[in-house]
């Protein structure tokens, strides 16, 4: 009779711990460029793109420059071609980490300036 409460308790505790650990490690905070330069963990940087960027076909690398609200700029490198709708976006969000003068973006979220209601109509 009591065993099942113990087992239930163990499951709950185990997942609380697992969730707490992975919550902390997978948290990708929004930071300024200055902050991004001083950490080696994965962060998100939001800013204005300064140029249309360059795509190096042979290296399969896309490079552009980003400026945040504090006016600081950074070079961003992304493996792959220029993301869709990059040219139309005024602001982009880069998720990645800073290393040796370059921000290595794992993903780039393109924010379109459009009026664009959520495409899924959900309650």
């Amino acid at each position: 009779m009591r065993t099942k409460y113990i087992i239930g308790g163990i499951i709950i505790i185990a997942f609380t711990v697992l969730a707490a650990v992975s919550f902390k490690s997978s948290l990708t905070p929004y930071v300024t460029i200055a902050e991004a330069k001083h950490t080696s963990s994965t962060v998100q940087v939001k800013g204005e793109r300064l140029d249309e960027g360059q795509f190096d076909i042979q290296k399969n690398l896309f490079i552009f420059h980003l400026k945040d609200d504090n006016g600081e700029t950074i070079e961003v490198e992304y493996k792959g071609a220029k993301p869709g709708n990059f040219d139309q976006a005024s602001h982009v969000v880069c998720v990645g980490r800073y290393e040796k003068g370059i921000f290595h973006a794992k993903s780039i979220l393109v924010k379109c300036p459009s009026k664009y209601q959520e495409e899924e109509s959900k309650v």
Partner: peptide, 20 residues
């Protein structure tokens, strides 16, 4: 700072739960 968890958070917990 407002932060978001990456998908690895969800995958880490969903995997063991799926086993159970």
């Amino acid at each position: 700072n407002a932060s978001n968890v990456s998908t690895s958070y969800y995958n880490t917990i969903a995997g063991p739960l799926a086993i159970i």
